[in-house]
Design a protein around this nucleic acid. Structure first.
Lengths: 106, 106
DNA sequence: GACTATACCTCGAAGTTAGAGGTATCCGAG
DNA sequence: CTCGGATACCTCTAACTTCGAGGTATAGTC
């Protein structure tokens, strides 16, 4: 039902190339602190997405340190569209349910 | 991260007393067909919610058949408020992330 | 008398996520 | 120079949720 981490990763990487450690902080920022995913979620997700062809990576040395930058492939962009639509559907459904008539309040 | 089934159940039961089999169909209807939860999800969830004091039940004979009707307790209403707020937070965060600037399209 | 719909339920497999833990480098402070 | 904190990568297991299949029984219909 979820797949939220995957959606977020694809979305951010569709805007610009980023590396794992950076994504951890970017997700927090991009969601207005609402969602915080640890490295234990990000790295395995990144590897899975690369394996299935949604992402491609390249190593880049920055100040003696090596970073692994990820970016979307065509397939990844398609997957992003699909997941984003699916999310809107679910989100819309729940919003509908939550907003209907009223209960005790007001 | 999810807890969506629980949220939906609490929400529907806050509107009126219902029984399990009915809830399965109500969830589909209330979410505009977007979400469909099977009995294997509903019954265990109902039992867990009753055990932790969010719901109370009563058996009612209807046409020779016995139904178990569930309704919210005070604690359940509090839990609903909490989960609903949490959901809005998550949902808002993801929407923010999805809406930011733009990628390839338009 | 058989089949469908109603109504309840449980179980185990499958998938996701979180958190803890592990390595190594760089940089600034003391 | 040495210590600690930030950077940067990674893996593993446990926990939790959720799904689907399967199981029982009654009521009504053809």
């Amino acid at each position: 039902m979820s797949g939220v981490p995957e959606l977020l990763l694809l979305r951010l990487l569709d805007q610009r190339e980023m590396y794992g450690y950076e994504l951890v902080r970017s997700i927090r920022a991009a969601t207005g602190e609402a969602i915080s995913l640890g490295e234990g979620v990000i790295y395995p997700a990144l590897h899975a997405l690369e394996k299935n062809g949604s992402l491609k990576s390249r190593r880049k040395a920055v100040g003696g340190r090596t970073r692994v930058y990820y970016s979307l492939t065509t397939k990844g962009r398609q997957r992003l569209d699909r997941l984003a639509n699916e999310w809107r559907r679910i989100q819309g459904g729940i919003t509908t349910a939550l907003e209907s008539p009223a209960h005790g309040s007001a």
